[in-house]
């Protein structure tokens, strides 16, 4: 914790993420309105005491929608990155542990995936599969595991030669237990860092998909949705785009600061 205090950027990232996490969790308690409550007599009201962040084109309370939207945005980030990390760790472990043809096969696959523009891939798949929050999370996950794979593989490469690993192998431990007991725990740092950074990208991808109309389905609120609704009235109903825009900005920023901070903190080179 002390190290966190020494790194103000990481600390502020942590605080941001924790705050948003808490807000998302307590959304049902603190949200003043049902996020889908339509009131056609209060369409596009500016922020006031009644509606802290104003109302949208159907008279729904933006503040409540933002709180519930936080849940969606965080969920998309966590699940997508969870999938990517899962695939990445498995493939990376296989490649890094067995090397040889397994490695070259997996790395070729990584190279192929890296050379196809990712956003194109996501677009095509989502459009073909019809958008839903689950499809979005799965597709983002399935198209962003390459980085983790490379990291884990590289980490395994350097760890494999360590004495304790060689010792475990000669003692006849099976491969799985070597990977789980010895190799993975020691490669955790880069995995965590890249996951945290991955969540940041996933949140941005979700807002981009919303912009293209391929995002989370109505009436569910997500920050990307609210922002896309608001862009039409950026000169008039500024509250509709300012709040979701800032929320995305601050959240992604928080993840990035936290991720980079963790890298610094956990990096053995920086330990005095």
């Amino acid at each position: 914790m002390k190290i966190f205090l020494k790194n103000p950027l990481a600390l502020s990232g942590l605080i941001i993420i924790l705050t948003i996490l808490i807000l998302a969790l307590v959304a049902p308690i603190i949200a003043p309105y049902d996020p889908n409550f339509i009131d056609i007599n209060s369409i596009l009201f500016p922020p006031s005491i009644n509606h802290l962040m104003g109302t949208d084109g159907l008279g729904r309370d933006v503040f409540s929608r933002m709180l519930y939207g936080a849940q969606i945005s965080l969920l998309v980030g966590f699940v997508a990155v969870g999938i990517a990390t899962f695939i990445g760790v498995i493939l990376g472990s296989l490649a890094g542990f067995y090397r040889g043809w397994v490695d070259s096969l997996i790395m070729r696959f990584v190279d192929i995936m890296l050379s196809i523009p990712t956003f194109f891939l996501i677009l095509a798949v989502i459009a073909f599969l019809t958008p839903s929050i689950w499809n979005i999370m799965i597709v983002i996950g399935l198209t962003s595991w390459m980085g983790v794979t490379r990291l884990v593989r590289a980490e395994f490469f350097s760890l494999r030669q360590r004495e304790y690993v060689l010792a475990a192998e000669t003692m006849g431990s099976n491969h799985l237990s070597i990977i789980i007991k010895h190799l993975l725990p020691n490669s955790l740092t880069p995995i965590i860092v890249s996951s945290v950074l991955g969540i940041a990208s996933a949140v941005l991808v979700e807002s981009g998909l919303s912009f293209l109309g391929l995002g989370v389905q109505a009436p569910t609120a997500s920050w990307g949705n609210i922002l896309t609704d608001g862009k039409e009235y950026i000169q008039f109903a500024w509250w509709l785009s300012l709040f979701p825009g800032l929320a995305i900005l601050i959240t992604v920023l928080g993840y990035n600061l936290l991720g980079e901070g963790l890298r610094d903190i956990l990096d053995p080179k920086n330990k005095i």
Partner: peptide
């Protein structure tokens, strides 16, 4: 160092189309 880090991160984190519309305006 820290302001630069913060600046480039903000650049990364800001939703592009939102900033684009703001700047266009």
């Amino acid at each position: 160092d820290r302001s630069i880090t913060l600046f480039v991160f903000i650049g990364f984190a800001i939703p592009g189309f939102w900033l684009a519309l703001l700047l266009m305006y």
